[in-house]
């Protein structure tokens, strides 16, 4: 019996370079490049019918709120017509877009897959792309995209990242912190699936559901991450709180002890309606949390993107605390 032909929406958002020569049609930098790119990569049609959408064609560092909103808009409009979504993305900032989309697109009973080419013009090659290129130069960009397309045509119901031989939850994806052939990882080493001779999902992988999906493009970008180090005067932050900043993440990796001047800063922030998130991987459970919101079970990227999403919903600090501590997109580590 013939199997039903799948249809996937392919969203171009950088990370499209097919080979090192980067000749005409090997990258999609403008909408006009799409037909030639698709002709150069005709094998993609063996997996599914491809419906192209242009989002962005510049450097990965340029992807932000506007591009995220465009992606959400396409997913929201086309969800009834396609079986899945494949998003190409430059590698440098892919984890940020992946994490953000996990919060902006919830309960979608279709796969939304992000991947990127390891190839870029030599002058455009960043550290992460160069490292990936050195490890994967035998594999080429197309194989990665073929694997991602197969996941986009699968029955997984979540935003995921596909790279190399792994399928990762978008809401847990970070840049690999240790030298690795794969530039992406998760903090709790969890994988949603592996690619060996095909895509094999873990037994617990979320499948398509009948839940009504929720989309939003509301994101508050007036947030920042500050690394706390002993002896550093944090009072300089005071001026920004409540005026230009709506949320601040204090990243504490050096100590579990919060000095008095930092507590004063927290109180000042609270008075000005600024959400202060204390991010620590070690989890100082003995701390009183009245002046800040303790986060210790998410990656830093998930914490940042979630805070932007939460503040886009509400600036009421009680709600911000509640939302930040409630899982929405399988973002809690080791769960």
């Amino acid at each position: 019996m013939p199997t039903q032909r799948k249809r996937i929406a392919l969203l171009f958002c950088g990370g499209t370079t097919l080979n090192q020569k980067d000749g005409p049609g090997d990258s999609v930098r403008t909408e006009r490049d799409i037909p030639k790119w698709l002709a150069n990569f005709a094998e993609l049609t063996l997996i599914a019918d491809v419906e192209p959408h242009f989002i962005y064609g510049g450097e990965a560092a340029g992807v932000g709120r506007r591009e995220w909103a465009k992606i959400v808009e396409v997913v929201s409009k086309r969800q009834g017509q396609v079986d899945g979504f494949l998003i190409t993305h430059g590698l440098d900032t892919l984890p940020y877009t992946a994490n953000m989309l996990a919060f902006l697109i919830q309960g979608l009973n279709k796969p939304v897959v992000l991947t990127g080419s390891i190839v870029a013009g030599k002058t455009e090659r960043s550290v992460i792309v160069e490292s990936a290129f050195q490890h994967f130069k035998g594999m080429e960009a197309k194989a990665n995209l073929v694997n991602a397309a197969q996941v986009a045509a699968s029955d997984v119901g979540e935003v995921v990242v596909v790279f190399g031989n792994r399928v990762l939850r978008a809401s847990r994806t970070i840049r690999a912190t240790t030298p690795s052939a794969n530039p992406f990882d998760t903090q709790d080493q969890s994988v949603l699936g592996k690619i060996d001779f095909g895509v094999r999902f873990a037994a617990h992988h979320p499948k398509r559901t009948s839940k009504k999906p929720q989309f939003t493009t509301a994101v508050d970008t007036k947030v920042t991450i500050v690394n706390w180090h002993p002896g550093v005067d944090m009072s300089m932050l005071r001026q920004s709180l409540g005026t230009t900043l709506h949320g601040v993440i204090i990243h504490m990796s050096e100590s579990n002890y919060i000095p008095d001047d930092l507590y004063q800063l927290f109180r000042h922030a609270q008075e000005h309606g600024v959400a202060v998130v204390l991010y620590t991987a070690t989890g100082p459970k003995r701390l009183k949390e009245s002046e800040f919101i303790l986060v210790d079970r998410m990656s830093l990227i998930a914490t940042l993107t979630k805070l932007m999403w939460v503040l886009g919903k509400s600036r009421d600090l009680t709600k911000v605390r509640k939302y930040l501590q409630t899982p929405f997109a399988n973002e809690l580590l080791n769960s």
Partner: peptide, 16 residues
């Protein structure tokens, strides 16, 4: 016999 893996394997084989 029709199988969704076949399209994927052919695409991978062509790409590589």
């Amino acid at each position: 016999t029709a199988d969704p893996e076949i399209g994927y394997l052919l695409a991978f084989a062509i790409a590589r």
